[in-house]
């Protein structure tokens, strides 16, 4: 078989993926970039308006509110989810009888569909009858109105985000199981306490996993949509929970401003890119690779 023939066969095998990429990813990407410079409203011919959509974004108060909400949410949800996932993964890494059951139980919430999750939490966080407030009252606290008070609604979403940490937990668990046992044995010989082993062995050894999970969590948080959309339609109360993706959706499908929504999509991409690059830059000093 000559090399030309081999190449042809190779391309033929790769063709389904290439076609899928071009038609379902590359074309929509380019189309949305072009659309972001137009006033496309689905049924009318798009008109080229240059940078107007991007300029409008900079002075759009609702956009700035949604952006601020999203960044605050990210700032709360990513660290909370990361700490919780690592802590749970460490617990699940212990050698205890019936561990498979605990692992399955802690991963289970991840399998609950987003809308079902949101509906469930509407009841859990209900100010009057909610499970959480009943528990808080039981131990003598005067609990807030999680869903109706603009000061607390964002916190509700941040707490709910922690519910979905099972996916990250599983990846951390895999990372923890890769940490060589001889490092802990050496530390034991040196008289290291559990916290020292965590601080100087476990965390450095799983730091590449932490970096990966943090970047994925940042991307997921900036794009958060389903849970706030179901729990707080329109970003109620008083747009305190109005997220970037919700405003993008409303512009695209409620107001049919596809050009403006596309511009928002590209701004979102740039924000994610910037935060990812920042995380990678920060990681240079803190992430330890075994090959280093």
């Amino acid at each position: 078989m000559n090399s030309r023939h081999e190449a042809r066969i190779g391309i033929l095998f790769a063709l389904p993926w290439i076609l899928g990429f071009v038609l379902l990813l590359a074309y929509p990407l380019v189309f949305s970039l072009v659309t972001s410079f137009t006033n496309f409203s689905v049924l009318r011919e798009p008109k080229w308006i240059g940078l107007s959509n991007y300029q409008e974004l900079m002075s759009d108060g609702v956009f700035l509110t949604a952006l601020q909400n999203t960044l605050l949410y990210t700032l709360g949800a990513v660290p909370l989810g990361t700490v919780l996932a690592i802590a749970l993964a460490m617990l699940l890494n212990a050698k205890v009888k019936g561990m498979a059951v605990y692992r399955a139980l802690l991963f289970l919430p991840t399998l609950v569909p987003m809308v079902a999750q949101a509906t469930l939490f509407l009841w859990v966080f209900n100010g009057d009858y909610g499970l959480l407030n009943a528990a808080l009252r039981g131990i003598g606290f005067s609990p807030p109105n999680w869903l109706g008070d603009p000061a607390w609604a964002k916190w509700t979403l941040i707490l709910i985000a922690a519910w979905g940490c099972g996916q990250a937990m599983l990846i951390y668990l895999a990372g923890l199981q890769d940490v060589p046992a001889n490092l802990y044995e050496a530390a034991d010989l040196d008289g290291a306490k559990p916290w020292h082993k965590t601080r100087h062995i476990t965390l450095p050894m799983i730091s590449p996993v932490i970096l990966f999970n943090v970047i994925m969590a940042i991307i997921g948080s900036i794009q958060v949509f389903a849970v706030p959309q179901v729990m707080f339609p329109g970003g109620a109360p008083a747009r305190s929970t109005y997220m970037f993706a919700m405003y993008l959706y409303d512009n695209a499908f409620l107001y049919q401003r596809m050009g403006y929504a596309s511009a928002m999509g590209w701004v979102m991409f740039l924000i994610i890119l910037a935060l990812t690059l920042a995380a990678l830059r920060l990681s240079e000093r803190h992430v330890h690779y075994e090959t280093q």
């Binding site: 209900n126 100010g127 009057d128 009858y129 109105n145 869903l147 109706g148 008070d149 109360p237």
Partner: peptide, 10 residues
């Protein structure tokens, strides 16, 4: 405002 919000949440 707080009383109204708490009341309505029920």
């Amino acid at each position: 405002p707080q009383a109204v919000q708490n009341f309505q949440s029920g």
